[in-house]
Write a protein that binds this DNA or RNA. Structure first.
Lengths: 255, 255
DNA sequence: CAAATCTACTTTGTCCGACAAACTGATAAA
DNA sequence: TTTATCAGTTTGTCGGACAAAGTAGATTTG
């Protein structure tokens, strides 16, 4: 047994990791801005003094993390991680952890209400126009559960956008991605599910337009309670989110 | 210009991506369970019929996504994506999007209150014991801002854990990772900041113990308002979260 | 017989060199 | 001006190579 450690542990992170970390540092610190080119693989090989395979492994890590992407000509660029892609990863994690619909519902209720409150305060004319447009489309496809479910998901994304709080937009997305796909099932199951949904959206939009926070919150709550009642007619809230949803999310991501 | 497309677009995803997708499908679908070995690189080479470099690039993608990891002997295993790692990625994204402290504060207020409400309902004896333990430690390090800030962050993680809602735990984490590091600055700045913080924790724990939801919410709100007042003495809430915090988060992640 | 040591084998991380396909940019032809 | 051609880059993939670290089985030692 050595008397006392003479030397500190040396850093033995693999080279590809160091490459990834080095590039990540430059991007996160702001020295490389989104849109800036990173250089070709060969240039990186020369700069880091490692093999191209090693550089490529490092690049894959950052590409997956959403910090790098390849433009149309496949050249490397720094970029801002897209919320959507991150949210998909999170949703996947929630599925694997087998969270229940009760957990999703609880959080969605909280976040959608917060979303509405902020939207009532801050929605711009443009936000309202987008919401109105969405509502008009919903009314047209009221008989088509799949299309209506998509409209519903979009509507709530738009409300979140109108909140002008990007943290909120990001925070609600993972639960929403798992939560809203069930809307199709629910709407096509119950009889007046579709009309109640559109009605709720109409009142919600009206509340945002009139800057009436209490009404906005009330209709958001009612809207989600409707979802819950509809869901409970089909399955238990304590059922865990299933792999089915993940496959749905993957299909969406790829298109 | 061709009259009409005779052929469908051929799938030209790179091989490493196909490898990653194939393994991901097996894991997400549940056919490979967390903890199951994936096999050695050479086995994957044989199964997929591609080069080892290609397999390795595919593996990197999944490793970064948190679906694969290498155990102590560096063999590949499927695993559940850790919330912590995902949250770090999200925090990084928030930094790059230059969100403001106001946005963080707004969402944290919402989620911490929700967290408290659920914790009051569902905290077990064990949860309460952990919180009490944390509180005792806080009282010991009340004069050490760095240690106290860490205790504070832990306290809120424990409250979220006591909510027994995993979606909530995950949803609050990204904002918290950026929000709480400022506690150190705030506590060391104001005079009674530290005592007020510990006092809030004490009341909060007491509320959870007594299942008193109103008191829990009230003290959570007061606690966060304290943070806000403290922060505003130092900087504007509309300042964007800075790169500094990201470096802090990276240091934490590595240890 | 149990514990420690040695040895042969496997696996990972890295490197090298190679090549086809796709893309770039510029020049030549219609 | 548009189209065709062509040489040079760059990426994606391949095959093979090797040192370091880990594994497991055989062997020695107490």
């Amino acid at each position: 047994m050595p008397a006392s450690p003479l030397f500190r542990r040396i850093d033995v992170a693999p080279a590809y990791q160091k490459v990834a970390d080095a590039i990540e540092r430059e991007i996160v610190s702001g020295r490389i801005k989104p849109g800036d080119p990173i250089g070709t693989e060969l240039e990186l090989v020369r700069q880091f003094g490692v093999n191209r395979s090693t550089v490529r492994e490092g690049i894959r890590v950052l590409e997956e993390g959403g910090l790098l992407w390849r433009d149309s000509s496949r050249r490397l660029q720094a970029c801002l991680p897209r919320y959507n892609k991150l949210a998909t990863r999170l949703s996947r994690a929630l599925v694997l952890h087998e969270v229940t619909f009760r957990e999703l519902f609880e959080v969605s209720m909280t976040l959608e209400i917060a979303s509405t409150e902020c939207a009532v305060e801050r929605a711009t004319e443009e936000d309202i126009a987008e919401l109105a447009d969405n509502l008009a489309r919903s009314e047209q496809v009221i008989a088509d559960p799949a299309a209506l479910a998509e409209c519903d998901a979009d509507f709530h994304v738009l409300v979140a956008k109108a909140s002008h709080n990007r943290v909120l937009q990001l925070a609600r997305e993972p639960a929403a991605q798992l939560f809203f796909p069930t809307t199709e099932m629910i709407v096509s199951h119950g009889a007046q599910g579709a009309t109640r949904l559109v009605e709720a959206h109409r009142h919600l939009l009206e509340a945002i337009r009139r800057r009436d926070k209490a009404a906005g919150v009330q209709w958001t709550r009612r809207h989600l309670q409707d979802w819950r009642r509809g869901f409970e007619r089909i399955a238990s809230l304590d059922r865990s989110v299933e792999h089915m949803y993940m496959e749905h999310a993957q299909a969406v991501r790829r298109k």
